Each structure stands twice: as C-alpha cells, then as structure tokens.
Amino acid sequence: MNGTRIGAGARERLYASTTDTFDETADLDYIAIEYALNGEPVKLTRAEKIHTARILHSRGLSDKAIGERVGTGASTVRGWRENGWKPGDTHPKTRSRAPRPEPVCGEPRMYRRHLKNGERPCDACRAANAAADRRYRLTGSQKAA
C-alpha cells in the first residue's frame, strides 16, 4: 500500500522577514528567528525569543507550544505577553523583598560591622552580640523570642 499518514506531508514554512536577515536597532537575527519559528533547534537572545513568541502568538499557538519552540517556560511567555511583549524585570514567580535596614549600634550585625571596619566594638554592640551568642547556645537561634 502506497500511502502517507495524516500530517506527514510538507508543512507550511514560516518566515520572519523576506527581505532582511538582521535588524541592528533591535539586535534581531531573522535567520535564527526563522529556525525557531519552524521548530528547529537554535540559540536565541532574549529579544529574539520575544520577537519569535509574538509571531507565534499571532499564529494562534498556545503559551506552552511557544515556550517549547523558543526554549522558555509557558509562564515566561505569559509574562512577556502581559507586559506588552517586553521583557519583565523579574520572573513572574519571584517575590520582591524590601532591602534590609542598615544596622545600628546595639545589634549583633553592627558588632560584626565594627570588626570588619577594624574598629573597636562599642559596649552596646558587644552586649548585643554576647546576648545573641547566649541565646544561640541555649535555644539554637540568635533571634529574641
């Protein structure tokens, strides 16, 4: 029997650009993008990944399928789409933390800062460090209850 299975025929090839091969302003390699659009293995920069994802999204592919073609996760593709096809500052699942306040005299952290700076620790810092050390030996934690 001489037949072909469904889907085994020649499939449509996707092209990123028909005239250019490189965009210097956006730092895009259209040949690499074309390979990624057609499911061929290629290394892409972040800008190229976003450009490829935007083209594939306009073709109706799911975030998971787009992520597999460009080499990222579906959540990253969703983040790009929700951010207007621009890279986000952080991954969508990352928490942002407030910076730690600067240590003040009377804390064990300031005792260590005095030592690091080659200074003699003040009495308040020495007492706080000794209290934290006692707590650690008794309870296994330096933090006061």
Rank of each mutant, 00 (worst) to 15 (best):
T90L: 11
R120W: 13
R112I: 13
E82P: 04
A98P: 15
C125T: 05
P87C: 07
R97D: 15
P101Y: 12
I50W: 00
G67M: 03
R46N: 08
E119Y: 10
R120M: 13
R69A: 03
Y111L: 10
R126C: 14
P121C: 09
L61V: 00
R126Y: 12
T52N: 01
T94G: 14
C125Y: 03
D123G: 14
K93R: 15
H91I: 10
V70L: 02
Y111H: 05
T52C: 06
V77K: 01
H91A: 13
L56W: 00
R109Q: 14
K43T: 04
R112A: 10
G73W: 06
E48V: 01
N117L: 09
P87N: 11
C122Y: 10
R112M: 15
L56C: 05
R113Y: 09
P92E: 11
P92K: 08
T94N: 14
R109G: 12
V77E: 00
D123Q: 10
P121W: 03
V70W: 01
I55R: 00
N117Q: 13
L44V: 03
G79I: 01
R59L: 05
A74G: 07
R54V: 01
A74R: 06
K64V: 12
E102V: 12
R81Q: 12
A74Q: 04
P103F: 11
R109M: 14
T72N: 08
